[in-house]
Amino acid sequence: MKGMTIIVKTVSSWIKVLVFLFGIYIILFGHLTPGGGFSGGVILAGSYVLLLLAFGREYAEENLPLPIASKLDCIAAFLFIALALLGFIYGAGFFFYNFLQQELMADCNAAGKLVSAGAIPLYNIFIGLKVAASLFLVVLVLSAFRSESDPTEGQE
């Protein structure tokens, strides 16, 4: 893919920042408003897909190389499980226990504040990274199906 016209390129180079920021907002406010890790991650991936459509595949791949994306994918998923296991250690043997909420941050759990809900925002961030990386990988791999990449991406 060569990319589109100059108009599309200019507009999407402005918009990509906004889309990226909106994705971050959705992830960070996931515990307060509709949204969360998955939806925010999709929007983050969307900003890269915008680049891919407007500037062509090579440009998008320069911005987020494939190996880095796949490593990010694995690391984020691993951190998610590690966080759940931390809940196991701090929460008297309970997997996924929200240990930050109950013990370490007891003063700031008023509903509606940004810093509240304990470990849930952290889970959201990891999920967001994971979804963004893997969705970007899926689109990239599918857009380049002639190259030697395996079709097993996108399982989660």
Partner: peptide, 24 residues
């Protein structure tokens, strides 16, 4: 529904990949 959408996304990606490979 959110969970099932996520699962659907994963299986859709795999299905489309298999279709493309089969077409090749």
């Amino acid at each position: 529904v959110l969970t099932s959408i996520v699962i659907g996304l994963g299986s859709l990606a795999l299905m489309v990949a298999i279709c493309i490979r089969t077409y090749e």
